[in-house]
Amino acid sequence: MIHGRLRQFFRTPGAWFGSLFLGLILLMALIGPLLFHGDPHSFDLTVAQDLQSPNAHFWFGSDDLGRDIFLRCVHAARVSLMVGSASMLVAVLIGCGIGLLSGYIGGWVDNALMRLVDALMGLPMIMVLLIIQAIFKPGLGSVIVIIGISGWMGIARLVRAETLSLRERPFVLVARARGLSEWRVAIRHILPNAMRPVIVSAFLGIGHAILTESVLSFLGLGIQPPNVSWGGLLNNSLAFIREAPWMTLFPGGLIALTIFSLQLVGDGVRNSLEGDR
């Protein structure tokens, strides 16, 4: 069964490229900082190393303070991937909880929760994020929580829709007829069956979260220096976009390619999960 799923996965166009690139990025984020020694934050103003174009020493060039962009990209990958996946986890947890509650209990609970989702979806999220971030002290944790909190609504709708159809399925009725509690039926029997679309949407969601974090960082409200994410690197590069386009190109390219890869992998996962439905 695993074998069939893998075959389905790799039959999807681009899934090869997506997983290869994601693997590379992940590897870079995990062991890159150990491999490439050197402090991504250190700079030396005595030697003229600022704004160098990519060369043998600075693979991705250097920035206005003479810092190695490649090294900074490697370190930023950790932050960006961390924010992306952790905030998606937050969103999945909230979304599954609310969606399951809404779909299983139904009635006024369902109505209230779904209207809340509608209301939140109607808000211009980026404005809300900016306001919240302006109030709280920006940091890794708060960025993760805030992006997670702003991204659970779609998942809640998915889980609710799945729950509505699953709760009418005979195995749910029969589980209740065996005297299992409503909680157990909802969490152990319904939720795992509702996870397929959630997994697919989570892959796309990670990309979206990375993008949201980049926007926040680009606006100076994301991860704070000296820590840096890909979006933060873009923020730095803005002033030098004419003299040193590599400062924009490399982190920007990494963001774009990572999100593209996540979508390709998400498509592959969908195909492999649909195979045995």
Binding site: R169, P170, F171, L173, A177, R178, G179, L180, H189, N193
Partner: peptide
């Protein structure tokens, strides 16, 4: 009622494949 269900009164359903949870 939960105590009675299963232990006192058991239910067998008409479509056996649908009566089993597919993911376990």
């Amino acid at each position: 009622l939960r105590e009675i269900r299963g232990k006192e009164i058991g239910l067998i359903f008409q479509n056996p494949l649908a009566a089993l949870n597919p993911v376990f």
